[in-house]
Nucleic acid binder design. Structure first.
Length: 149
DNA sequence: TAGGCCATCTGGTCCT
DNA sequence: AGGACCAGATGGCCTA
């Protein structure tokens, strides 16, 4: 793969500096604004939940609060034998919040991994896939180093 | 402007 | 039943 080869050719060769120490990962690659939970998103005045242009949110904005506590089918036709899971607007919003938290913790883990993987200070922030691939190469490199010393 | 990356929403599936 | 996890869809932002 091209990315793999690129990493091996350039970045991997510079994992270790002249002193034999790992290069420090630049601090500028901390979480950017987009990686944090968007606290600027509008809140529903009644539930204080974030709203966006989604099916459920549109219902909220249209004043359909009577659905908040009442179970319903998620979408479209439910005439099929396989019943969809019944979910309320409140449950859907709670699931969205949990998912945001889950993705936030996932990104925290990626950020921690970015700090562990050495790279050039002037390189732009590693993407998630780049971080994973570089970590794989880095681990292989360190493993070889241990086995041959 | 196209493509890459990411945040978020959403529904399905699995697990407790 | 409900939460965790996952993958697809969508839209915004940024860069070449």
């Amino acid at each position: 793969m091209e990315m793999q080869g690129c990493l091996q050719d350039s970045t991997l060769l510079n994992f270790v500096n002249d002193d034999g120490n790992l290069m420090a990962f630049p601090q500028k690659y901390n979480l950017g604004p987009k990686q944090k939970v968007d606290d600027d998103a509008p809140l529903c005045p009644n539930t204080q939940k974030r709203i966006s242009d989604s099916f459920w949110s549109r219902e909220l904005e249209d004043g359909a609060e009577d659905h908040l506590g009442s179970p319903r089918f998620c979408c479209g036709s439910h005439s099929k034998d396989k019943r969809r899971r019944i979910i309320t607007v409140v449950q859907r919003q709670a699931a969205n919040v949990r998912e945001r938290k889950r993705m936030f913790s996932l990104n925290e883990a990626f950020d921690e991994l970015r700090r562990k993987v050495p790279t050039f200070a002037y390189e732009k922030r590693l993407s998630r896939i780049e971080t994973l691939r570089l970590a794989i190469v880095y681990i292989s490199f360190m493993t070889d180093l241990l086995e041959h010393t």
